[in-house]
Design a protein around this nucleic acid. Structure first.
Lengths: 149, 149
DNA sequence: CTCATATCAGCTTAACTGAAATTG
DNA sequence: CCAATTTCAGTTGAGCTGATATGA
């Protein structure tokens, strides 16, 4: 009897690239919904965060940081410029370079996003202890940040 | 003296959603380059992996698993069907449902991708100990997989 | 009637390659 | 001449909303 068990699939462990992509997708939806009031997408927001962290940065530097081609960075930056969230000034020692920096409006948008972050994180990480959160943060940071040039 | 220090930016810790997105971007580029011989994108590959894991699944189930709308799932599935990587049969107990399953070609593509995975993982995780890899895998799995319905 | 499923149509954003202009 | 930076043009894929049809 019970010839047809519940097909106990071995559930082989997912590879690393798939796991990261999947986790990112799990987070992405919630974030975009929560940040609908902020006029930027999650990719654009990461650009703002990185400019803020660096103080100022060229498009080429940002592209390297985010593992994108410079052309893709141009398309990410355009709406940020159009909305006045970032500004630029030519680097006088290397006049081809455009140093990008946040405007007051840009800093405002970033702050507006940061206000919402704790609530989102709490939702996502509800099942994780403080220790686990710290560990995950540390490991992901090492994964994300390119080795110092 | 030294009125203008090197602006020692506090480098405030990145929020969780940003960290995950960033880590995913760090991995994505390498993976897509390594898998250029496999005729699917990383998103489509995740669909194949999940169908394989489940044995068979409907588009609606997959959409829930991946936190996407059913419409988006349709667009992900179309190229997989067009290339004969997946097949479908109507569920007789619920004739609106289409059970999706891998074809031999689909299993082949998956295997072809899996052959390359260890090399990619080794690159990405070069700086991580076995312990750290296990921890990261465990934590990401909990983050990605939706709670059982 | 309602709910779930599947899919079509149309739109936007984010990624790519290729090509061109500018600066050092 | 060459390398790095920026940007334009064109293409594709991946996400969304809205609408429609069908089956339980």
């Amino acid at each position: 009897m019970n010839d047809k068990p519940v097909t106990p699939r071995p559930r082989r462990e997912l590879s690393f690239p798939h796991l990261i992509k999947w986790a990112e997708m799990a987070v992405r939806g919630r974030v975009e919904r929560a940040l609908r009031t902020v006029p930027v997408t999650s990719g654009q927001l990461l650009v703002l965060v990185l400019i803020d962290e660096q103080g100022e940065a060229t498009a080429a530097e940002l592209a390297r940081l985010m593992y994108l081609t410079p052309q893709t960075m141009t398309t990410l930056l355009r709406p940020l410029r159009d909305q006045g969230l970032i500004d630029q000034r030519t680097d006088e020692r290397h006049r081809r370079r455009l140093q990008l920096l946040l405007t007051d409006v840009g800093r405002g948008a970033l702050e507006q996003a940061r206000v919402q972050t704790p609530k989102i994180e709490a939702e996502i990480l509800a099942d994780f202890t403080d220790d686990e959160r710290a560990t995950l943060t540390r490991l992901l940071t090492r994964l994300a940040r390119p080795p110092d040039r």
